[in-house]
Structures are given as C-alpha cells and as structure tokens.
Amino acid sequence: MRSDKPKKKKRTWLRVTGIVLLLLIIGIGAYVYTVWHSLNKAVETMHEPVDRVTTKRDNSLSLKSKEPFSVLMLGVDERDGDSGRSDTIIVMTVNPEKKSVKMLSIPRDTRTEIVGHGTTDKINHAYAFGGVAMSMDTVENFLDIPIDYYMQINMEGFKDIVDAVGGVTVNNDLGFTYEGVHFPEGQITLDGEDALKFSRMRKEDPRGDFGRQLRQRLIIQAVIKEGASLNTLTNFGNIFEAIGKNIKTNITFDEMVDIQANYKSAANDIEQITITGTGQTINKIWYLVVDEEEKTRVQTELKDHLNVN
C-alpha cells in the first residue's frame, strides 16, 4: 500500500509550471515565422486529446467569441510500474472581459467523490484511478464548474523552462538555506535547479505555505519577464522544446492562437484564491474535509468568473 504522507519530492513548484505555460501562450506577441514554427512543433509534441465532454456547459465553448474558459493543471510524478498521483492540482479560470485570471490550488488530500470510480477518497487519487479524464470529471463535480482543458506537467518541467529562458532574477525577502543551497536576502539569480529549491521551502519560513506561495509567484513573474524580453526572443525554440517535452494538454495549436489573440489582457491580473478545510482522520486515513459553506463560496466565485450559473 502506498503511503499517503506528503512526499519530499519536487512538487510544490509545480503549481507555477502550468501557469508559466498558459501565460506564455497568452502573452507572446512576436509572431515571426521561427516562433510560430517552434510553437507549432511543441504543440504537436504535447497535444494529447482526452475522451470526455463537460456536463457543466449548455453550449460548446467558443474561444473566438472570447468566452471565459478553465484549465485544470496536474503536477504528476509518474514512476515505472506506477500510474502516479496528481500531487499538485490547480484550477485556473480566464476571463478576457474582466481582464483577469483566478487561480485555485486544491489540496491533494481534499476528501471528495471520485467520479467514475464509485468511491469517496482523496482528490489526487482520481488520477491514479482513471488518469486525466477522471481527474477532470472529479474536479468538475467538486467545484460545480466546467473544466474545459487540462495540462499535465512532468515534475522536471519547470526546471527545464527556467533554464531555457536563461535563469531568473528575483528579490528575496527572507534569507534561508535549503537542500545545501543558501538563498540570501536581496536580489538573487537562479538557474532551474535552484529555482526549484527556492520555491519548495516551507518549514523554515515563519509564514509557512503563504511564504512558499509568495516565492512561487516571484518565480512565475520572473519567468514571464525573461520569456517576454527581447533577449530571449531568439530562444523561443528552446523554451517551446522544454515545454513540449514536459507538458501534455488537450489544447490544440489553433486554440492556442485564439487564446493569444483574444485573451492576453487577462494575464494582467492574476488572483490566487484559496479553499480551506479541517483535518480529519476517517478509517485511519487523514483527509482535508471542506464544509459545504466553504465549498459553495469558492464555487460561486469561480462560476461568476466563468459567467456560468
């Protein structure tokens, strides 16, 4: 039986990797041929359709009409002989009219119905039981909103992307040492490996997970800044290659073009929202239990952002 204890693996930084991809797609404005060709090649590599249809929309989503959409991002650690679990689960909703993105991190131990499996379990088990499709169905049921797209992120992906943009520079407000690397206060420059460590540390931070999320946001902003700079325009081939190797998604190339054309203003306002619960041990297993009032609060906020009832 696999342990349900949090693993000391590179997963906390995964909540930023999909965001980086999505915002790079939204924000890219230099459509010279080489960029277009590199993106097309990367999308061909990472495109993987999923056999499901959302039950939360009356009509098909139209990106050309600038309708709000949602993306489920799954940070997955897969090993030989093991289907893996989605240890990082993030839902992003994108609304071009409101020019904003909302990002919700769902704790991996959240207790909910696993749709299609007939059980109530930790939400991250949906991936182990039924892959991407069951994860999308389960999260869609839990939040009561349509889940339109997914991004499955390999655990090494973020490191590759940071290295592809030539590293990042951030302003660190807390000096600390983690896994043999010292991160002093002030402006520091990080390669991919150090960026992972910088965004993983939690226990030594008096702010706990809040502090870790702050550092993750710093990394996101730095990657976007580097990726959009003139110095890296000629390096988009390496960036897209890193993305193509480490991410799977059902977003097609044409849909990415529509997102870039119609949704890039939404990247100007990224809001992180949280869902809280209480820890409970049920049948000797620890879960995070979200009460109905809290669940309804989050559902209402996301429904409003997606313009759905």
Results as ranks from 00 to 15, higher is better:
D4G: 04
D4M: 01
K8T: 01
I19L: 15
Y31I: 01
T34Q: 07
K41R: 12
E44A: 14
T45M: 15
H47T: 09
V50S: 08
R52G: 06
L61S: 07
E67T: 10
L72K: 08
V76R: 13
D80Y: 11
S83W: 01
G84R: 04
G84K: 03
V91A: 11
M92Q: 05
M92S: 09
V94N: 03
E97V: 00
V101K: 08
M103L: 13
P107S: 14
D109A: 02
D109M: 04
T110F: 12
I114C: 09
I114S: 12
I114H: 12
I114L: 09
V115E: 14
G116P: 09
T119A: 03
A126Q: 08
A126P: 07
A128R: 01
S135Q: 10
M136W: 02
D137T: 08
D137Q: 07
E140H: 05
N141G: 14
F142Q: 05
L143T: 06
I145Q: 12
I145S: 12
P146E: 06
I147P: 14
G167V: 00
V168G: 11
N171C: 05
N172I: 02
L174N: 08
F176P: 03
G180F: 10
H182S: 14
F183A: 05
E185H: 10
I188F: 13
L190E: 08
D194A: 14
A195Y: 10
F198S: 06
R200T: 06
R202F: 12
E204V: 09
G208K: 10
I219K: 13
I224D: 13
K225W: 14
E226P: 01
A228T: 01
S229G: 14
T232L: 07
T232I: 04
L233D: 07
T234P: 02
G237C: 00
F240S: 01
F240P: 00
F240Y: 07
K245L: 12
I247S: 14
A261C: 00
S265W: 04
I273Y: 03
T274F: 06
T276K: 02
T281P: 07
E293G: 06
E293F: 04
E294L: 05
T296P: 11
R297D: 02
R297K: 03
E301R: 01
N309D: 10
